[in-house]
Write a protein that binds this DNA or RNA. Sequence first.
DNA 1: ATGCGGCATGATGTATGCAAGGTGCCGACC
DNA 2: GGTCGGCACCTTGCATACATCATGCCGCAT
Lengths: 243, 243
Amino acid sequence: MTTFAKPFVVSPALADPAERAARRRPGPTRAETLATGLAEAITDGRLPPGTTLEEERLAAAHGVSRTPVREALRLLAATGLVEQRPRRGAVVARPEPGRLAEMFQAMAELEAICASLCAVALSRADKARLASQHATMGRIVEDGWLDAYRDANVSFHEAIYAGCGNGYLAEMADATRRRLAPFRAAQLGGRDRLAASHAEHGAIVAAIQAGDAAAAAAAVRAHLAATEWSWGVLAGQPPIRLG
Amino acid sequence: MTTFAKPFVVSPALADPAERAARRRPGPTRAETLATGLAEAITDGRLPPGTTLEEERLAAAHGVSRTPVREALRLLAATGLVEQRPRRGAVVARPEPGRLAEMFQAMAELEAICASLCAVALSRADKARLASQHATMGRIVEDGWLDAYRDANVSFHEAIYAGCGNGYLAEMADATRRRLAPFRAAQLGGRDRLAASHAEHGAIVAAIQAGDAAAAAAAVRAHLAATEWSWGVLAGQPPIRLG
DNA sequence: ATGCGGCATGATGTATGCAAGGTGCCGACC
DNA sequence: GGTCGGCACCTTGCATACATCATGCCGCAT
């Protein structure tokens, strides 16, 4: 767990102006706007898993035609946040329990890799930044401020993703976390769990600061194994209609 | 590298008839057919990276209207195989070299995890099956049959993905491999590389059969580190028009 | 009463038309 | 001669209309 395929650079970066221009991204289309909005609504819990997403209704609600709605749904379907059954419409994804378990395990492994890479790749300054972020969360725990901790928690984990120095890996981890978000909304329930979570974060940070990749991976697995129990109860809820 | 978040089951599987019916997937739509066809063409190398994909041309070529073409392109864009620039059309994805390196590293790590899981999760019978698959490839190497080895190689790696017992992880690994396929088309060039590849596979199989997760992961990383040099040459090729 | 088959309904899948934005070319100006 | 500005063409984005299929109800036969 200490050696990785090195992230070397293969050929000179394509930096000529034509290439730059060709990669420029003009303003987002309605479909993309819709997709990001719906994605947020799903991860936030405003659109619970199982909610049916009727094209016409969504189109009317957002003042557009069905075409961009369809494209947004396609986009989200490919992301995994919604499930499209041909000719039977789309619903907010509600993976079977077994698949949820797989996703959770995958997230743990992805995050373990990211933490390992952080341990060996992060600069001293960045490690210090991570530690200070962790310290801030400690103060939030002392205040018992649940909502703030939830947000800070996401930031903390995203910092680990981003810090691994591999954007592709970070995106996969982040996507997985987002797909699991609807099923974790009710967690971090008790104050003791809050403190425990923070302590586990501490172990991760310590391992990263020490540059110990294996310990970082183990700490991440322990952390996620400790939280996994809490989302199972939501797995079997019935479909809910979009009002 | 020896403990994992366990893939336990959270609640009884949703097996009631209504649920089953609701998850049934009727026949594929034109958009999906197109998407799979284009995806194959891209990974096969028939549509090289940088190829511009004009909607109307594709529509005419496949005898459909622009609408399903657009949806197929959206689907592929979310998969990462094509890149969509709003109002500027779609092209077959041509990641920058740095991103290719990231993807390759990510694939190595994903595959390392899969191999580790194989080592601890695969049944004795399945391990034997994997070994026999490997033995078959040995015969192909002796014959120097390049094309057959290429196909068998894909099957071998997919067997490792599938064998890890985590479908989600397997899908991510497979998707990453497919996205990298266009940039690896010209590899496995020499006969010596063929034999070396087979030997590296042997190390992986041996570690899996021994149940040694750490060794399996290391063997996978070594294998992929040995092949990575060969695809860089394709990274900087210019855009190609679809004829 | 129960099961089955046909039909109405309403959704999605597809095609087409229109409008807006981008690209490339050409000419004028410096 | 080089560069900037305007224009025409082409492609994409979006809206609308039609075709197709899943679903649920209702009536009929058993």
